[in-house]
Design a binder for these strands. Structure first.
Length: 547
RNA sequence: GCGCCUGUAGCUCAGUAGGACAGAGCAACUGCCUUCUAAGCAGUGGGUCAGGGGUUCGAAUCCCUUCAGGCGCGCCA
């Protein structure tokens, strides 16, 4: 619908000998009486053409040769051109929608471009919490969205399985192991205190018995560390599985060291003269690329920092020749952006190569009161607990009805209380209702095949035309969501569409005595169902047949 | 102190590349189930878009500034 309109406007501009602007803006007016679509081009051109916008709009409208696709074209307000499509046109479009389905709905924007999206990447030192859940829902939905738009997407989880934190995890488990077997062993000051540590220790005792009792940690640290984080990782994986999130690759940090990628990355930077020694440490000259201070990459004690492997990691990403690299981070890591982008530039790529999408913090509430969380004390609510309590679809939907960069209050009580009237059910219910209409139709012996051949002209009441027009805007919403990397636009659209279907359902009967009309209305329902399912699939939300 | 994000209806949030009278859900109140699922529908009320300047034909949207909240500013990860 939009493509056709843009073409028409471009042709008209050409006829008038006006150079077309880089972008012909088409918008969906919020006020339906203004028509289906509107363009402010006349107002935009007014400045360069030095003519009043209304005059330009008039000329433009006159230059449109074939007006048959429109019911009317108005010039309104300060110079908007409002288009209302003819019924004939929208019937033919909706027919295409039913025949071509996702091909009609989804614009091929990516054209096969390769994108890597890295998200969650939580340390395997504890269970996922709600913040990770937000990153998970957002990352997965964005991945699906871009994939639907013709990108080839790799979903990646980066595992911090090297370094200090996993060692501390290992030590924590070691300490609990000793304690459980009756040895008086001090729990490390900086250790992880969550109950899951004890659980790992218990399982370990079951599997391996007492053979590590009374050993020194240094002798068995590799075993305990490996064992513990692998256990954590598999528990994270199973949480994600239940949350409906899947990855294509799990990139291990340790692997980067093993393969020598870290060494290679450092050599690369050294060769570029971007590494220097100071105070017994090695520094990366990130200030050369806009960072506010240089960063240590080899500490005085000879160990690497967290950032060092990140250099190697991002170098590896870039060298895999993705067309686009997207990192989704929790907003608490925003201080890292310039540093990592500095790496990209340092190795000779434009920093725009890497897009970092920040997902803001989640405040967990229970009945308006903040839930106190302390990772140190091991007191925090996990993603697992939340999805057990409020459900995965509801949880995801709450995340996906917000812009990623807005702070989010997640009230467990509200989420549960709403549960029966939650917006997610509103959307799913529309689909389930349609299924039930189809079941009814089949009982009545109405042919539900090839509905696009139904006599769509019979869809003539105001509500029906409104729904058809809404359905036809889906590709525009989709395109906007893809370009802005904002899956939540799909969420809102689905709510609006459902908000048109339910009243329609309530006011009119789909299955009537008139079989041709019934088929036409079934066709409308089918079209709605196609769009609802397309949207829900992108969001990663389930599509129950019955409710 | 510096940097990033946010401030829209009682609450939680949208507001589409500055555009036409600011929207939804929840909460509140009033109605609707012998007919395709009431997780639904119909109706009512509710806002100086944090405050103040500026740019523009036009600003919730862009710029400056003040205030408020969150998060960062390690040879931690």
């Amino acid at each position: 619908m939009k493509k056709d309109l843009v073409k028409i406007i471009e042709d008209a501009l050409k006829t008038l000998g006006i150079e077309k602007p880089t972008h012909i803006e088409i918008e969906i007016p919020q006020n339906e009486s203004f028509g289906d679509m509107a363009t402010p081009v006349a107002m935009i051109l007014a400045a360069t053409l030095k003519k009043p916008p209304k005059k330009i709009a008039e000329e433009l409208v006159n230059a449109i040769k074939d007006k048959s696709v429109f019911e009317k074209i108005d010039i309104a307000g300060p110079g908007f051109i409002n288009f209302t499509f003819s019924k004939k046109y929208i019937y033919s479009e909706i027919k295409k929608l039913m025949k071509d389905k996702s091909k009609f709905l989804r614009e091929d924007i990516g054209k096969g471009k390769r994108v890597q999206i890295e998200f969650i990447s939580a340390n395997p030192t504890g269970p996922l919490h709600l913040g990770h859940g937000r990153g998970a829902a957002t990352g997965a939905a964005l991945s699906n969205l871009l994939e639907a738009a013709g990108y080839k997407v790799d979903r990646e989880y980066y595992i911090n399985d090297a370094g200090k934190q996993v060692r501390i995890l290992g030590l924590s488990v070691f300490a609990r192991y000793q304690q459980l077997l009756g040895r008086d062993y001090p729990f490390p000051e900086e250790g992880y205190r969550g109950g899951y540590i004890e659980e790992i220790a218990r399982v370990l005792i079951k599997e391996e018995g007492e053979k590590y009792l009374k050993r020194a940690f240094d002798e068995v640290s590799d075993f305990f560390t490996d064992y513990s984080y692998k256990r954590m990782l598999s528990s994270i994986d199973s949480d994600l599985k239940d949350f409906g999130i899947a990855f294509d690759t799990w990139q291990s940090e340790k692997e980067l060291y093993k393969k020598g990628d870290v060494e290679k990355a450092l050599d690369d930077l050294k060769n570029r003269g971007l590494i220097y020694e100071k105070d017994g440490a090695a520094w990366f000259k990130s200030t050369a690329f806009g960072d506010d201070k240089d960063r240590v990459i080899i500490k005085q004690d000879g160990e690497y920092t967290y950032f060092t492997s990140d250099i190697a990691y991002h170098r590896q990403k870039v060298e895999k020749k993705y067309d686009e690299i997207i990192d989704i981070w929790g907003a608490d890591h925003h201080g890292y952006i310039t540093r990592v982008k500095a790496v990209i530039e340092a190795i000779g790529y434009p920093k725009e190569k890497l897009k970092i999408l920040l997902v803001q913090m989640v405040t967990l509430l229970r009945g308006r009161k903040p839930v106190q969380m302390s990772k140190r004390a091991g007191k925090f609510i996990t993603l697992r607990e939340v999805i057990d309590e409020v459900g995965t679809d509801t949880t995801k939907f709450i995340f996906l009805t917000r812009r990623p960069d807005s702070h989010l209050e997640f009230d467990l009580e509200a989420a549960k209380a709403q549960s029966s009237e939650n917006p997610v059910f509103y959307v799913q219910y529309a689909n389930a209702r349609i299924n039930s209409i189809f079941a009814h139709a089949r009982e009545k012996g109405i042919d539900t095949d090839m509905l696009y051949n139904a006599d769509l002209k019979l869809l003539s009441v105001h509500e029906e035309l409104r729904i058809i027009r809404k359905l036809l805007t889906y590709p525009m919403i989709f395109e906007g969501a893809v370009n802005a990397h904002e899956p939540h636009r799909i969420t809102f659209y689905l709510q609006e569409l459902s908000g048109m279907f339910h009243p329609y359902y309530n006011k009119y009967r789909v299955i009537t005595e008139k079989s041709e009309q019934s088929r036409a209305r079934l066709a409308l329902c089918e079209a709605i169902r196609i769009v609802l399912q397309d949207g829900l699939e992108i969001l990663g939300i389930s599509i129950p047949e019955k409710m």
